[in-house]
Computed example of a mutant assay.
Amino acid sequence: MINYTLKQLYSFEAVVRLKSFTKASKELYITQPAVYMQIQQLTKNIGSDLVNIKGKKVSPTHIGKKFYQTCLRVISTLEQSKADIEQSLNPNSGHLEISVATTTNSFVSRALAQFKNQYPNMTFHLEVTNRKLLLEKLANHNSDLVIMGEPPTDMLLSAHPFMENPLIVISHPDHPLLKNKRNTIKAISRETLITREQGSGTRITIERDAGMKFNSEIEINSNEAIIEAVQAGLGIGFVSKHTVQLELENNIIKQLNVDKFPITRHWYVVHSAKTTLSPIAQRFKDFIIESATN
């Protein structure tokens, strides 16, 4: 009979997910030797090596990969049970783990502030990050809710579109192309184009829907930095219109009229279809959907 403790499960899950004993120890607030001891004891209890260690890099063995999935299910069940109990004791409280794309941060921050006013006893952790890390959050069930652009199609997800997200072209207020009533994709492609990093939702959409290929080595991993680069006259940028409303209103930047733009996308509230949302997460999901339609 295979025996293991919850400490061993949490330690193993963190080591595999973070690929490091050091990072796992920091996340779990225990020493690195303690984490290593938990994994060693778990290995002994199961009777098979669970991780491969090469220098500082840690990866799961074949058995380790199978056991990792078991860890995810057990931990998910435990965390859900904990949330359910807390919610039963105080239906207006609970903790929310939410991860959002940088383009949605402004809207989500306002929504969280309003939601917190309604449920003052609830707590939350908000992480603003890029698409790659959002996908990792979804794959590893590390967030209750993810707010993002187009969801992946290769995961079993619940994804609800709740707001249009127009993607526009922006320039410095003195850019000569502003004199044209309409600019072609070909004309825009001759300019220095500033965009997000490879793999970002914005870049994928532009390349797919506008048929554009980026011609510069200027890649920036935040919308704020793209806006600042355009203000400085480094080139033409591509951003969600929601992120530059204030700059447009104050003529700090200008929106260029370009064929195929704006590209209208949507923001989605996403979570794993395999898990049941906690009451507070379900309430917040309903809240942002209703907020977007009002």
Rank of each mutant, 00 (worst) to 15 (best):
G201Y: 06
P152C: 11
A210W: 02
M163G: 03
M212R: 08
L177A: 08
I168P: 13
K241W: 02
I168D: 14
A210D: 01
A229W: 01
K213Q: 11
H175S: 07
P166V: 11
V239R: 06
T192R: 07
P161D: 13
L248S: 09
H172W: 03
T192Y: 04
K213Y: 04
I218P: 01
H160V: 15
E164H: 05
I168R: 05
F238W: 04
V258M: 04
A225T: 09
P161L: 10
I252P: 00
I168Q: 11
K213N: 12
L248H: 06
Q198C: 01
I253D: 03
P166K: 10
P176W: 05
H160D: 13
V230G: 07
G201N: 12
S158C: 12
T202S: 14
G237Y: 04
G211L: 07
I194V: 12
S216P: 07
N250A: 10
D209G: 00
N183S: 08
N165W: 01
L167G: 02
N221D: 13
Q198K: 11
V258A: 03
N250W: 04
H242Y: 06
V244P: 08
D174K: 15
K241S: 07
L256V: 09
N251E: 15
L234F: 08
I170R: 09
H160C: 04
P151T: 08
L167N: 01
I218T: 10
L234A: 06
T243K: 00
F162N: 08
G233L: 05
F214Q: 05
V244Y: 05
H172Q: 12
I226V: 13
H242P: 00
N223P: 03
L157R: 11
V258E: 10
I226L: 03
G201E: 09
N223A: 12
I204S: 14
N183Y: 02
E197Y: 06
L193T: 06
N180E: 08
S171Q: 05
G235W: 06
R196A: 10
N215V: 11
E228Y: 02
L193Y: 04
R203N: 08
K254T: 07
L248P: 03
M212D: 05
V258T: 08
F162C: 08
D154S: 12
L256W: 02
A159L: 13
S200Q: 10
I194C: 06
I220Y: 08
R208Y: 04
M155A: 10
N250I: 07
K213S: 11
K179C: 00
E217S: 14
S240P: 01
I226E: 03
P173K: 04
G233M: 04
N251A: 14
R208P: 00
N257T: 14
T153R: 13
S200C: 10
E224C: 00
S171Y: 00
T195D: 05
A232P: 03
I168Y: 07
E164G: 02
N257E: 14
I170A: 07
R190V: 00
E249T: 06
I204K: 15
I168C: 12
D209L: 15
I204T: 15
D174F: 06
